[in-house]
């Protein structure tokens, strides 16, 4: 039982073609996701760019401080700039990246972006360990996208990948607190938000 999935099923019955909602087609497929007990963050099965199978909540979020964005390899718009910018954030985090703060990039085109392709993308951008690029089944990724608020209430905008979200979702699962930073903000602006949420730099 899940809010977003139920909603997607409802929308699917309206007729995909009439609404031109290409992105929602995959979401009609039944997925077998389970919500973790106390969280509404799905425990989506995903594959990392290193080929490892993971569960989104259990393995990547539970008890952690995370910074999550969405991208895709063929993106001609903001993705490369955002990735380069987040790479600078990773450098600012230094040893904390992958230890106290975990960075994840979810693909918006899971059907195209295989783990191998994502690995090449990560290498191209000289991403250090502690930052995972993630792919999975389309419907699962769509559900995850809605769960994390990477969506627009206007379905036409929402389905247009050229205007896709530029948000970096920043959260601290232990404190059940979430906020965001623009993925294209100045790296130290993003770092300030991460530091605020992570609560690890307290005096």
């Amino acid at each position: 039982m899940n809010t977003r999935r139920e909603l997607l099923l409802g929308m699917g019955s309206l007729g995909v073609a009439a609404l031109g909602l290409q992105a929602w087609r995959g979401a009609q497929a039944q997925s077998q996701l389970a919500l973790s007990t106390n969280q509404r963050i799905p425990n989506t099965p995903l594959v990392t760019h290193e080929g490892k199978e993971v569960r989104f909540y259990d393995d990547l979020v539970r008890g952690k401080v995370v910074a999550i964005n969405m991208m895709y390899v063929a993106c001609a718009d903001i993705c490369s700039t955002a990735t380069a910018n987040l790479r600078r954030v990773q450098q600012l985090l230094g040893a904390r990246a992958g230890r106290d703060v975990f960075m994840y990039s979810l693909t918006l085109q899971p059907e195209l972006d295989t783990p191998e392709l994502l690995k090449a993308y990560a290498e191209l951008h000289r991403v250090d360990p502690g930052w995972l690029f993630l792919t999975g089944a389309s419907a699962d990724i769509e559900e995850l996208r809605y769960s994390l608020g990477f969506s627009d209430p206007d379905p036409l905008v929402d389905s247009d990948q050229t205007t896709h979200t530029g948000m970096l979702r920043v959260g601290n699962d232990a404190f059940q607190r979430w906020t965001m930073a623009p993925a294209l903000a100045e790296p130290r602006q993003i770092l300030a938000t991460i530091n605020h949420v992570s609560r690890t730099l307290t005096f």
């Binding site: 909603l7 509404r40 969506s151």
Partner: peptide, 29 residues
């Protein structure tokens, strides 16, 4: 979550009956 899922189905379908009046401001949220 169950409540939210069931609560939203009806308004969605209702608003979709009249295509002119269809309001999508709260979806797919």
């Amino acid at each position: 979550l169950k409540l939210s899922a069931t609560a939203l189905t009806a308004p969605l379908l209702l608003s979709a009956r009249n295509s002119d009046a269809a309001e999508w401001v709260t979806t797919p949220q």
